[in-house]
Each structure stands twice: as C-alpha cells, then as structure tokens.
C-alpha cells in the first residue's frame, strides 16, 4: 500500500466523520483512494472534493465546530493556503487533523519530496501565538498509525494536529498492518455546537475577542496547553545510540536514509547513532540534550536548507558542536553523502 493510501484507509478505520480536500501532487491518492473506497457506504463518512484548499480547511473548521472527527490533506503550496483556516481553528480551540505531504518549495516549487515546511509546521504556520501538534512518520506503517494518534491528540488538546510527511513516503509502498474498524462517534464533546434545547447554555465557537485582556487570558490558556504537550506528548526513537560518539538527528524520509548511513559509518569504524524525533512539536528537547551530552558532535540531516537544526541547537544549547547537512528542492540525500558530511564535519582531524 502507498503511504497516501495508508493514511486514507487508516482514517476510515479510525472512525473519521469527514474528509475535505483538493487534489495536489504528491498527495492526490488520499482523495482518490477515499473516493474509490466510498466510505459513506462503509461507515457513513463524508468525502468531499472542495473547490479549493481554502474551502476545504473552512469545511474542516465547520465539521470540527460540530465536534466531528474531520481531516484534510494537501501538499506544501496547498498547506500555505490553509494557514488562515488553521489559525482560526487553533484560535477557536477545535480539534482536526491536517496531512502535509511536503514537496520542494518555495512557491509552486517541484513535486518531489522535501522537508522544507518544518518551520511552517512547528511554529504554527498562520498568524498568532499558536502551535500545532506535529507528527513525523518514517514508514508507511507509521503513516497509518499516526492518523488515529493524530485524532486522539487533537481531541485531547482541542488543537489541530498535523502529520508532516513528504512525497517519498506518500508515494512509496510498504507492508502495512491496519487497525480494526473503529465505530464513528455517537456522542459529541460538551463544547460542540450540535444544536441545543433549553437544558444548557449555548456553546459559542469563535476566535474573535475584541477585549485585549480577554485575548491575553485566552493566549495564556493555550500556552498552558502547549506546555502540557511538551511535558506529556514528546515521542522519539533512538537507534545504535548506546556507544555512539556522533549523533545524527533526522526525521521522516531523512531518518530512513540515515539508518543506512549509520550502518555505513559503523562499517568505516565511526560510531554513529540515530536520534529520530517522532513529534516535531513538541520537539524532544530534553532527551536530545541528555543524549548529546555523551557524544562528540551532532549532525542534523534534513531535506531543507536547515530548519530542524535550529531546534537541535536550542536543545543542545551550545554544549557541543552541531552541524547540518541537507539537500533541497526535491533532491534526496544519499546514505553515502551523509556519512561523508559526518566525516568532514567531525570525524576528520
């Protein structure tokens, strides 16, 4: 199964209520798969091709306001279009899942895989002081698994969650074990605008507060949520790190390639290990800091000009040398190149 198809099938099985999207390479298979699969016949889930990305994210806003499990997907230029809606959804404290199958940028860029939307994803993306929970799968299996996890986190925090992946994982096929079908929700959260009788106060969903004091109070409240995420939701994985002298930090497709680089480096006698952030926000700051204290150097590898490396630098906080190696515009780094970069930066005297 392709990564994009795995996301679509996992969403049906997670009991999603609706998908709103607009096609763009390299993620069109999400919409195509859902249309072909006719989930309205399987679970009653709605699938709708909107007239634009902006319409799609605002349909998500509407669905989320009703307390439904809703999601959308797109690729970089389309995700940029969705940022206004995302900011409103975060401002209205609503849960939703957004999938970004990243392609090379800026602008329309290329249709090939990239990781150059890291800043946009982890810093909020739209206007205002908000964050999005960002999950970074590195296999088709995780593409499927993170859909359910994304929905759960989004509802736990009433905040958008994003799967940040790229064209390589979207287009790639691997074996995947899918979860059993979960039923769609029959009861909705107490904040949802589902229509009311006379038995309760009305629920208001808005991101507007003209009173600055009120708006600051609201900001403090959502900042508390982001702090709680940093305490409770950090996820990461380490490979060959017990005796590592050099640490490679990479996520998503880069992390897959770096697994091979670690083997190649070890064949050459360089003790390398891989630290893979699974959540990009919250970034695994503390575990990386602890790990970095035991090594001689850290190399951040990304398909970008160097974005995650800023979080690595913040985590390490000047204690040891941090380097960056990246390819841009849709070019994938090779495992050999990465070993060479590691040697050039650290291992060569």
């Amino acid at each position: 199964m392709k990564g994009n198809e795995a996301i679509a099938e996992a969403a049906i099985r997670a009991g999603a209520d609706a998908y709103f999207g607009y096609p763009i390479t390299p993620q069109s298979e999400v919409l195509e798969y859902l249309m072909a699969e006719k989930p309205h016949e399987r679970t009653g889930m709605v699938v709708l091709q909107a007239e634009s990305e902006i319409a799609a994210i605002n349909m998500v806003y509407g669905g989320a306001a009703c307390g439904r499990k809703v999601f959308t997907s797109s690729s970089s230029p389309g995700i940029s279009l969705k940022q206004e809606g995302l900011s409103y959804i975060a401002g209205a404290e609503l849960p939703c899942l957004v999938v970004n199958v990243v392609r090379g940028g800026p602008g329309l860029g290329t249709i090939q895989p990239a990781q150059s939307d890291y800043f946009q994803a982890t810093r909020g993306g739209g206007h205002g002081d908000y964050r999005v929970i960002v999950l970074a799968p590195y296999s088709v299996q995780e593409m499927a698994d993170f859909v359910g996890m994304g929905f759960d986190l989004a509802f736990k925090y009433r905040n958008p969650a994003m799967i940040l992946t790229d064209g390589a994982l979207g287009q790639m096929m691997e074996k995947v074990l899918l979860k059993e079908q979960q039923p769609r929700m029959t009861e909705y959260p107490e904040w949802a605008t589902t229509g009311k009788g006379t038995d309760r106060e009305k629920n208001v969903i808005t991101s507007l507060d003209l009173d600055s004091a009120g708006q600051e109070k609201f900001n403090r409240k959502i900042q508390d949520k982001y702090r709680q995420m940093k305490e409770e939701e950090v996820r990461f994985e380490v490979t060959e790190c017990e005796d590592a002298e050099y640490l490679i930090v990479a996520y998503g497709t880069s992390a897959r390639i770096c697994q091979k680089s670690v083997q190649l480096a070890r064949d050459k006698g360089i003790k390398a290990g891989l630290f893979r952030p699974v959540t990009l926000f919250p970034f695994p700051e503390k575990p990386l800091r602890e790990m970095a204290e035991k090594v001689k150097g850290v190399l951040s590898v990304e398909m970008s000009a160097g974005q995650m490396v800023e979080d690595v630098l913040l985590a390490v906080n000047g204690r040891i040398k941090v380097g960056h190696y990246g390819r841009m515009g849709g070019i994938l780094p090779t495992a050999d190149e990465i070993v060479e970069a590691l040697e050039n930066k650290f291992a060569k005297k």
Binding site: A168, E174, R256, I257, Q259, A335
Partner: peptide, 8 residues
C-alpha cells in the same frame, strides 16, 4: 526490516 528504501 528495510532501513532506507532510497538507495543509489
């Protein structure tokens, strides 16, 4: 298990 699916 396959490490990198992207090879040269």
């Amino acid at each position: 298990p396959i490490s990198s699916p992207i090879i040269n």
